[in-house]
């Protein structure tokens, strides 16, 4: 009974935790606690085989399945513990409490008396005893569970299987599509800029800088921009900083109008913009037959 009194509060708390924690992973872990506790109780209740099965099958296999699925599904808004159905939570607690109270009353009404104990039944070994019962009296049910398991496995495979409806897209297909897009709309033919190129931070969440110093938003993975965690590319500031350093160096060497140089710089940037636009137009003109060839 010592094991029971030690474990029971832990199990109840863990079970309540399943109710209240927000994240499903935590709930799974708490459930594992309850299951392991149960396994220990099985051992205490002279059921060594079930003890092993509980650990192996439940805690080992089933809980792992849960965790795998959680991994696949990912974090979800349904983790929120805010109730959406009016009165559901209150009613659930009331009815559940009533159920527990009633079962408790029912247990209070009966007197179990002294347990017979399993010393006699487990005389030839618990597993042998179980096998004796399982393969004599319950053999038909046992066979039926075999059928059930095969069916369940098949069912799960059917449900999880995803039929490919279109032929697999090959690299040649993708190249052809890209050239076609270039031919139709003048879309950039080459690879997109990788994040961090020319930027000061060579990180995946920092947009690359175009030759004119403007950040290229398309270089950042869309999931990062959607999440709003993309860093801003301090393009001009960096350029200004570099220019400032250079000017400071110039200032040291010779007199010059830094303001004038800056305006010339700006001019140069506008020229670059224009040149890029022209290039795109030329590309559209030149690329059309090329796209057709491809």
């Amino acid at each position: 009974m010592i094991a029971f009194w030690l474990l029971a509060p832990v199990m109840v708390v863990a079970a309540l935790g399943v109710l209240f924690v927000r994240k499903a992973v935590h709930a799974a872990l708490l459930l594992a606690v309850v299951m392991i506790g149960l396994a220990v109780l099985y051992a205490a209740l002279e059921a060594p085989f079930l003890f092993a099965v509980q650990i192996v099958v439940y805690t080992g296999a089933i809980m792992m399945l849960f965790l795998f699925v959680l991994m696949l599904v990912g974090v979800d808004a349904s983790d929120s513990v805010v109730e959406t159905i009016r009165g559901q939570r209150v009613l659930a607690v009331v009815v559940g409490g009533a159920f527990a109270a009633l079962v408790g009353v029912l247990l209070g009404q009966v007197t179990l008396g002294t347990a017979v104990g399993l010393e006699g039944a487990n005389e030839g070994g618990n597993i042998e005893g179980l096998a004796d019962v399982l393969f004599s009296r319950y053999v038909l049910a046992f066979e039926a569970t075999a059928a059930l398991l095969v069916t369940a496995a098949l069912g799960a495979m059917v449900l999880a299987h995803r039929e490919r409806l279109t032929p697999r897209e090959t690299q040649a297909d993708r190249a052809r599509a890209r050239v076609r897009l270039y031919g139709e709309g003048g879309e950039h033919l080459g690879p997109k800029a990788a994040p961090g190129v020319y930027a000061r931070h060579n990180a995946v969440d920092t947009p690359a800088l175009l030759p004119d110093g403007t950040p290229a938003e398309s270089s950042v993975p869309s999931i990062i921009s959607a999440r709003g965690t993309a860093r801003s590319a301090p393009a001009y500031r960096d350029v200004d900083a570099v220019v400032g350093q250079l000017e400071a160096a110039d200032h040291d060497r010779a007199d010059g109008d830094p303001r004038r140089r800056r305006s010339g710089d700006t001019q140069a940037t506008g020229d670059a913009d224009r040149a890029r636009a022209d290039g795109a137009a030329d590309g559209a003109r030149d690329g059309a037959p090329g796209g057709g060839d491809a």
């Binding site: 499903a24 709930a27 849960f66 979800d76 513990v81 939570r89 659930a92 607690v93 559940g96």
Partner: peptide, 15 residues
């Protein structure tokens, strides 16, 4: 009973 209440109050199908 805790399990039953959990079925009733949790919205995540896995939980």
């Amino acid at each position: 009973s805790i399990g039953a209440v959990g079925v009733l109050v949790r919205r995540n199908a896995i939980v």
